[in-house]
Design a binder for these strands. Structure first.
Lengths: 316, 316
DNA sequence: ACTGCTCATAAACCCAGCTTATGACGTCAT
DNA sequence: ATGACGTCATAAGCTGGGTTTATGAGCAGT
């Protein structure tokens, strides 16, 4: 590989793209950078993250070397971010926020049996919504230890009946038998395609019958998303044979992005891709592609204590 | 709060919460986990990320120890994710995606002078939109080296006139003199408050006059967001004296989340907080709180080559 | 039983990042 | 001016996590 044809323009430079983790500073360094942005001082930032000032100095410096960009203006009166540094810091903040969500989720997953709040949730909710709720809960009630068990609606119901969970979250068209619940959010399904797909250039919205007649990339039969889609299109001739049938939302997404064809996916799963135009949403007329996300509990036993705190967060 | 009734059950456990970076596996480990999910094998995953099989084995193991959760089911025929592992992997993917955006941005920021595509962009666009576009561009045209210069509209225009940039992106109400452009996206501004704020429980939408009369948390005078807000409320009595005036969007966001009061912020900046209900959007009636985001170029010199590729990504 | 895949274990190594100790620079107050 | 206090930088030495190589053990299919 390095013996291309002849000489590269630059004698140095031009590394063969090592791995992402070598090009992106580690979390500790990013946290330190955020601390510098907040405090305007390397030393103060160092104190916040629990290291010494020379360590912080060296760490920021090596981050600048790694990125090839000056991030902070040092002066004897403190350190301010450069313009580039401010931008980098904003991007870094998004990584750290994702890491916080990861941490909140992982901590709940490890969940000790003695947790004060035991949550059972369906996959979509556990994956996309719960980490954010847990962060908010931690902010409001810092000492609430939460445990999380993820499973389908039936498993959630079972855990609630058995007293293994204080509150549940399910997605779907109906509340399972024996449970009460309230809607906490809606999961809208969107028809998406790659920007290169002909539908991406359409003017008006798509006709339901046309959607029904077109082969789509789908999750396997039985998945929640597919059930909703099936129900919504039942009156329009029913779903066509799938173009491709894949085992995970991620796989479907990847297939759509690579241009294999259109699919219907939860808006929760694709906000990122829509924002960057890796995917394009195509409006569909007159079909209600949405399902309710509900908090549930055994009929008559309205949640109290920590579970109520969590609910009040999700309902506003 | 922590001195509830009596003693804690567990004699050990109960660490005093070290830093985030010690509770979240590093990027390399997360990438490895994603590779395991894709390949169903530690060895194959190891090969993909460029380490040996024992290293991968040990890394996954220490990740499981760190999180306190079994992530993969090992068998002599391969490794599959456990249920918890699948969830953790989904959360991990969000960190890695944020890291990819960071990398794409940082690489453009380092931007060598010999880049094939030189972009000048305003802050909001550089911060929220451009990294995603760059990822998409890299997917479509892998060998396009991009350089990025961020600045306000005037700086963008200047760079274009000087021939220092091939294409620009600006936000605002009008196209700067001497430039042509097309709208590539809209930045909707949303009125937000903490979930505990009275407005969060309102039934109907807010009256513009009421919004204008209420003290808000604002960016300093002159910021793009504030200009739009000023213009939109000019016909409704004009903006009230600010409740608080802060220097960065992040600071405003933090103040709103902590319940200091309502603010008007770009939807781009708050999608995360809305999803997790740390913030609540309050509908406002009859005011157009939005600004156009435009690609621009010197009048008459429509972009060609790589710049055109980028534009076609942003327009779909 | 043999071959080929899987993952686990053990020992040696290496380097990134830490701490401690020190120094240089600039600002402010006296 | 001059000394005190803040800033960040440099240097030397240590430590440990993650790596490699080498090996072994378990199970499947031929």
């Amino acid at each position: 590989m390095s013996s291309e044809i002849a000489g590269r323009p630059g004698p140095q430079g031009d590394e063969p793209r090592p791995h992402l983790s070598h090009r992106v500073p580690d979390l500790g360094a990013l946290e330190l950078l955020l601390a510098v942005a907040r405090h305007g001082s390397l030393g103060a930032a160092a104190r916040e993250v629990g290291i010494t000032q020379p360590a912080a100095s060296s760490r920021i410096r090596s981050m600048e070397r790694q990125l090839g960009v000056a991030l902070v203006d040092r002066s004897p009166r403190g350190s301010r971010l450069t313009d580039a540094g401010a931008l980098v810091t904003d991007w870094a903040r998004r990584i750290v926020e994702a890491a916080e969500a990861f941490d909140a989720g992982a901590q709940a997953l490890r969940g000790r049996r003695d947790s004060r709040l035991r949550v059972a949730a369906s996959m979509t909710i556990a994956e996309y919504l719960l980490p954010g709720w847990l962060i908010a809960l931690r902010a409001a009630r810092p000492d609430t230890a939460v445990s999380l068990q993820a499973g389908n609606s039936a498993a959630v119901a079972q855990r609630l009946f058995a007293g293994d969970a204080d509150v549940g979250f399910v997605e779907g068209l109906a509340v399972p038998e024996g449970l009460d619940g309230v809607v906490v959010a809606h999961d809208r399904l969107a028809l998406v395609a790659a920007p290169s797909h002909p539908w991406a250039r359409r003017r008006g919205p798509l006709d339901p019958a046309e959607l029904a007649a077109t082969p789509l990339i789908l999750r396997e039969r039985g998945s929640g998303t597919r059930q909703v889609l099936d129900a919504a299109l039942a009156g329009h001739g029913g779903l066509a044979e799938p173009l491709l049938e894949l085992a995970s939302t991620t796989a479907v997404k990847a297939a759509v992005v690579s241009g294999a064809g259109p699919a219907v996916l939860s808006e929760l799963a694709i906000s990122e891709e829509l924002a960057s135009r890796r995917l394009v949403a195509i409006p569909v007329e007159g079909v209600l592609l949405r399902r309710d996300l509900r908090a549930v509990w055994p009929a008559g036993h309205r949640p109290t204590g920590p579970a109520r705190d969590l609910l009040s967060l999700t309902r506003g």
